[in-house]
């Protein structure tokens, strides 16, 4: 079953120097449970695509294309009702894990607010247990719900964000560089957690990033964005072995390989350095 179908999406920002097309004619679709990666440099339109889906563009607007979520045309949903789709049908794992939690509310309260505003009613005890279970699923102690954000590490905060994203069992998770604020070891663990809960839930996921190596391990299909356009899509293996677009080739070439690692090491004994030593 197709969860998400984006057809010819175009997003425009009005600027003093005329309209700027942040996203141009982007089309891709996701089947249930599929993992799709979106790579590209900063400003290539990855995040804008996600924000357009959430209808949270600041100052920008969708000027063309169709967005279908579980077969429903999102353009037909009025602004006032869009709120009820967010997190219930598609959730977001934010980029800035360090600053995405409200500093003055306890973790449990911030997760509980999601239930409260999506008309999910529990008794206080049941709510506590459910929030505790959610936290346990992302590898945190259930007691974390009584903590404030500043008492958690960056990795723990991002795990809390993942717990929030699966709270209402959405069919689509949008993860906007969910690990970019974390250090390398924590990145891997958090991404593994995200992958595990996504598989358990059976949700489709769009993972945004610019780390090709991390992507290659996580997603099945990859889309490469460049200057607002989706220049290439396909299975990861195909893209890596046979990149079509020059920008994709550049991205892949930017990865350190063992060959080039060797050349880094030999560079120490380069004539330039030796001359410098004299």
């Amino acid at each position: 079953m197709t969860v998400l179908d984006i057809r010819n999406l175009t997003v425009e920002y009005r600027t003093p120097r005329g309209p700027f097309h942040a996203v141009r004619n982007v089309s891709f679709s996701l089947e249930a449970g599929e993992r799709f990666g979106l790579v590209g440099e900063s400003g290539s339109g990855k995040s804008t695509t996600i924000l357009a889906l959430m209808r949270m563009l600041r100052g920008g607007m969708i000027t063309g294309g169709e967005l279908l979520l579980n077969g429903r045309d999102l353009a037909a949903v009025p602004d006032a009702r869009y709120r009820t789709i967010r997190f219930a049908e598609m959730s977001l794992v934010p980029q800035g894990a360090m600053s995405s939690l409200n500093p003055v509310l306890k973790i449990g309260r911030q997760i509980g607010d999601i239930f409260a505003d999506h008309r999910v009613r529990h008794t206080p005890e049941a709510r506590r247990r459910i929030i505790g279970d959610l936290l346990a699923r992302v590898g945190l102690a259930p007691e974390v719900q009584d903590r404030f954000p500043h008492e958690l590490s960056g990795g723990m905060k991002q795990r809390v964000c993942i717990a929030m994203a699966i709270a209402l069992k959405p069919s689509l998770i949008l993860a906007d560089e969910p690990t970019s604020a974390l250090d390398v070891m924590v990145q891997k663990q958090v991404l593994a957690t995200l992958g595990r809960v996504q598989r358990e839930l059976g949700a489709a996921i769009v993972l945004i990033g610019h780390d090709m190596a991390l992507m290659a391990h996580f997603v099945g299909r990859l889309g490469v964005m460049y200057r607002g356009e989706l220049v290439e899509t396909g299975p990861v293996r195909e893209i890596f072995t046979n990149p079509q677009h020059p920008y994709t080739r550049m991205l892949i070439d930017s990865l350190p390989s063992f060959d080039r690692l060797a050349s880094f090491r030999t560079a120490k004994r380069s004539p330039v350095l030796q001359r410098g030593r004299v």
Binding site: R83, I85, I114, D117
Partner: peptide
């Protein structure tokens, strides 16, 4: 960022404003 996430969570505007 926590305001953006609050909005993404689909919270009611009144709650985002107040809390």
């Amino acid at each position: 960022d926590y305001i953006t996430l609050a909005e993404a969570k689909g919270l009611k505007p009144r709650r985002i404003f107040r809390w």
